[in-house]
């Protein structure tokens, strides 16, 4: 390992460019992939580990290669610079999400309330068009205000976002689904929205609700079957 290689990894991360650090075992020879000069089988294996987003050791051309993928960070787009959003930011950062907060209401979306977080003061439809959520993006709406939440959810449903969540009671959510259906979303599309958002952990306070949302996000990202790790039924 060299400082130059670490700098190259940091540069790729800053440019949101997916790369793989390949290490030949056990001699420790290293390179970054993809690289047109590298072996085709090595480049193909690199593409596979980036896709799976999981490091692994592979036998390629009679040699053993450890391939460590570095994908651009997952994104969490939060609509509503509300109290729960403030609680959500530190959990999201710690679990590897780059957070963007969207809220056109100047009183809420302030740097004082959200230090070190990307804030967008545009209306959600405009902001979502610019942010263009992809398959490594999650969208959570927290405003309770249909004027703000609905356009964001409408955009999210037309994207490949891997997680879409909307804060609000069951009654609020049912009304929301009727409005989104009028915008042309069918039942299968609407089923993508997790509403009320979050896992049922009995959350009451803002940090507890943030934790239930993050737990559900992690489960969606990892494709987890939810349940107790000890396999027992909840009492």
């Amino acid at each position: 390992m060299t400082p130059a290689l670490i700098a190259a990894l940091a540069e790729a991360r800053a440019a949101a460019r997916p790369v793989v650090l390949a290490t030949s075992l056990p001699d420790g020879r290293q390179c970054l992939l993809p690289d047109p000069a590298a072996d085709a089988a090595l480049n193909a294996a690199a593409a596979a580990v980036l896709d799976a987003d999981r490091a692994e050791t592979r036998a390629i051309g009679g040699a053993s290669w450890f391939l460590a993928p570095q994908n651009p960070p997952l994104r969490l787009i939060v609509v509503g610079a509300v109290h729960i959003a403030q609680a959500l930011v530190p959990f999201a950062a710690a679990t590897g999400f780059a957070v963007t907060i969207v809220d056109p209401r100047n009183a809420f979306a302030t740097d004082a309330r959200f230090p070190d977080t990307t804030l967008i003061g545009d209306w959600p439809d405009e902001a979502m068009r610019a942010l263009a959520p992809d398959g490594r993006s999650a969208v959570v709406t927290l405003t309770h205000d249909p004027k703000l939440d609905d356009p964001a959810l409408d955009h999210a449903l037309r994207s490949q976002a891997f997680y879409i969540g909307a804060l609000g009671s069951r009654k609020t959510h049912a009304a929301r689904l009727r409005r989104l259906a009028e915008l042309g979303h069918d039942a299968a599309a609407l089923a993508r929205i997790r509403g009320p958002v979050g896992l049922d952990i009995g959350a009451v306070s803002a940090p507890e609700i943030a934790l239930s949302i993050i737990a559900e996000l992690v489960a969606a990202r990892r494709g987890a079957a939810l349940g107790r790790l000890d396999g027992k039924q909840a009492a």
């Binding site: 390992m1 400082p3 670490i6 800053a14 460590a68 780059a98 957070v99």
Partner: peptide, 15 residues
């Protein structure tokens, strides 16, 4: 910008 914990270790090592 957030970092995956495993990536952050390399930055610390370089530092």
């Amino acid at each position: 910008m957030s970092l995956e914990p495993s990536e952050d270790i390399l930055s610390i090592a370089a530092h």
